[in-house]
Design a protein around this nucleic acid. Structure first.
Length: 567
RNA sequence: GCACUCGUAGCUCAGCUGGAUAGAGCACCCGCCUUCUAAGCGGGCGGUCUCAGGUUCGAAUCCUGACGGGUGUACCA
């Protein structure tokens, strides 16, 4: 339910009928404290300054014009000129009852759907996926699911790295090994790469062949291309295993590899040359931008292209061919400078229209306990697949002592909890800051963790199992806690909207945490199935519980995290 | 050097398009299970929001500067 925009309209109307003119957007905020109501409007003070009038006087006048039929219970002027708003219990009851059977739990669609390209994950085919790919993959996936749910048309783009000099070496080695035995060796790409590198360093012949193969692939040599394709296919298969485990919704159709843009690269250069945007400097083709002392190099002195060139081609493709309104790059924050340049140039050269929103959805680095980038004990990169397997093993250990799990069920629950923990830990931190990786913290039942949400969900399911019957009737708001809970449930849409605009998954996790905390309080204080609870109240509370479960489930679903009925 | 970014409780983090007495979790202390999953809930302890100026009715939030950490900085991606 779009509560804030409804309230904003009511206030706008009140201002109009009070003959107060303003050009500012009417922004409704959540009340900072329960005693200040549910929502507040803080714009009167600013208005008073412009009108040179007493803010409390204006607030009082506006107050008289606020239409309180329906949604609003009461309003008051407080402090220097705040307008505090309490929502009506009847209205809350009705509104929350009405979304009980809704599989969108009351969430509507965006008014003007956009075509949004989301570039995320983007693994390098020469290597195994490591923890560095985790954040891009899950933040991007959440964003994609979220925008899709809200009604945008989302085009996922997995910009895999399948091009470059290292592939000459790799396919030369693949050929040398024989493609049959090699497919076995390709199971560990990291090792395969190392072995190939050893060969490269020890044998001059091999090294020459590797270099020769790079050229041959680029020239479209059928034999080399076949080997190359085989290699990419195997490597991509590894990625898909990770996606499967991680529950990331990327498949072959979403792959638009670097190599896809090869044919477009020369055109990018000529376009920039023609418009005099680029100049030759030290033999390389460069674009110098104001405010940046370092140019963006788009073509090397030897005529070769760079990833900047590919990025420009990709931007053009996404804007012109895919006709995107918004293009999001879910990429490490360290590439901020690069994207700033590439975005500016693409617009300058008309490769991307002015109206297209280009966003670098930046995220920080994953750190270990000592505050250094996350590595294995011997300093290597942590393979993503190993990390995920460990998460499941650890999750299993934490829940094993709990009663009533059969082996198959335990496996399933451990998977939901382990993977959920890893994803939630990552998504719940504001994405631009670096984040500290800690098994203990992410697998804790306490605090803002996936497990706490899953536990709350399981607890609710347990109530239903015990009740084991029909749930009907209406939601009745009986006390302040039920008032707050039903309102919180109705705030789901406003939360998702904010998260989608700012591309901040942690907005959703904070909301879920608040919701679950509130539900836990409700659960402690408002008995549902216990003796002496009137039938009407029981039904109402069962429905509040049901709605809470539905919102938790949908919220976690958007984050790509599963729920389980028992923990 | 320049650019970007961060600095909030002992620790991990919210809050930042200016609003009322700055919030959570962990840790520590104290309560609550004959009754819906106590891996829960309630209460307590804990703050010069790095510092100094400025803008104004009002600043953790905006601006300037300093200090401290991280990152990026010409032909890798």
């Amino acid at each position: 339910m779009k509560i804030k925009s409804q309230l904003s309209q009511i206030i706008t109307q009140a201002l109009q009928s009070a003959n107060i003119e303003t050009t500012d957007a009417i922004v409704i905020s959540d009340a900072t404290k329960p005693e200040f109501g549910d929502y507040q409007f803080n714009g009167i003070m600013k208005l008073a300054k412009i009108l040179k009038k007493n803010p409390r006087e204006i607030a009082t006048t506006v107050l008289e014009h606020i239409d309180t039929t329906g949604m609003i219970d009461r309003v008051e002027v407080a402090g220097p000129g705040f307008i505090n708003i309490w929502l009506d219990n009847e209205w809350l009851a009705k509104a929350s009852t009405s979304i009980l059977d809704d599989d969108r739990v009351g969430v509507g669609y965006v008014e003007t759907p956009q075509k949004v390209v989301i570039d995320y994950s983007g693994p390098n085919m020469a290597k195994q996926m490591h923890v560095g790919h985790l954040r891009s993959s899950i933040i991007g996936d959440t964003l994609a699911t979220l925008l899709e749910f809200l009604g945008d048309e989302v085009i996922r783009q997995n910009h895999i790295g399948d091009w470059g000099t290292q592939f000459g070496m790799l396919i030369a080695y693949l050929e040398e090994q024989g493609t049959d035995t090699a497919s076995q060796n390709l199971k560990d790409l990291e090792q395969f790469y190392k072995d190939a590198k050893v060969r490269f360093d020890e044998s001059e012949d091999f090294a020459n062949k590797a270099r020769e193969y790079v050229v041959k692939i680029q020239q479209g040599d059928a034999h080399c291309l076949k080997l190359w394709k085989q290699f990419i296919d195997t490597s991509l298969g590894h990625c898909e295993e990770v996606y499967e485990k991680l529950g990331v919704n990327l498949n072959r159709e979403d792959v638009r590899a670097e190599s896809f843009y090869n044919d477009a690269l020369s055109n990018i250069i000529s376009t920039l040359k023609e418009q005099n945007i680029s100049t030759t400097s030290d033999g390389a083709e460069c674009v110098f931008l104001e405010g940046s002392d370092v140019p963006l190099i788009i073509q090397k002195g030897d005529g070769g292209y760079l990833y900047a060139t590919t990025d420009l081609a990709a931007l053009k493709f996404r804007a012109k061919e895919l006709e995107a309104d918004r293009i999001c790059y879910v990429v490490d924050a360290r590439q901020g400078g690069h994207f700033k340049q590439v975005f500016a140039i693409s617009k300058m050269a008309g490769m991307v229209g002015e109206e297209v929103n280009l966003e670098h959805i930046a995220f920080g680095t994953m750190m270990d306990k000592s505050g250094k980038p996350f590595k294995t004990r011997d300093g290597g990169t942590v393979k993503l697949i190993d990390l995920l397997d460990e998460a499941v093993v650890r999750a299993k250990a934490t829940i094993k002592e709990r009663e009533g799990h059969e082996e198959a069920e335990l496996e399933k629950v451990a998977k939901a909890i382990g993977i959920g923990a890893v994803k939630y830990a990552d998504l719940s931190i504001s994405r631009e800051s670096n984040y500290l990786f800690s098994w203990d913290k992410m697998l804790s039942f306490d605090g803002n963790t996936a497990l706490y949400m899953q536990y709350a969900y399981a607890r609710i399911q347990s109530i239903f199992r015990k009740h084991n019957g029909e749930i009907n009737g209406e939601i009745i708001i009986g006390d302040a806690l039920e008032h707050r809970l039903s309102l919180m449930l109705l705030k789901f849409e406003d939360t998702l909207t904010k998260a989608s605009i700012e591309a901040t998954p942690h907005t959703i996790t904070s909301y879920l945490y608040d919701l679950v905390t509130l539900f836990m309080k409700f659960y402690e204080q408002n008995p549902i199935l216990k003796e002496g609870v009137e039938e009407e109240i029981k039904m109402s509370r069962l429905q509040l519980a049901l709605l809470t479960a539905n919102v938790i489930k949908k919220g976690l679903d958007i984050l790509g995290i599963e729920v389980v009925d028992k923990i």
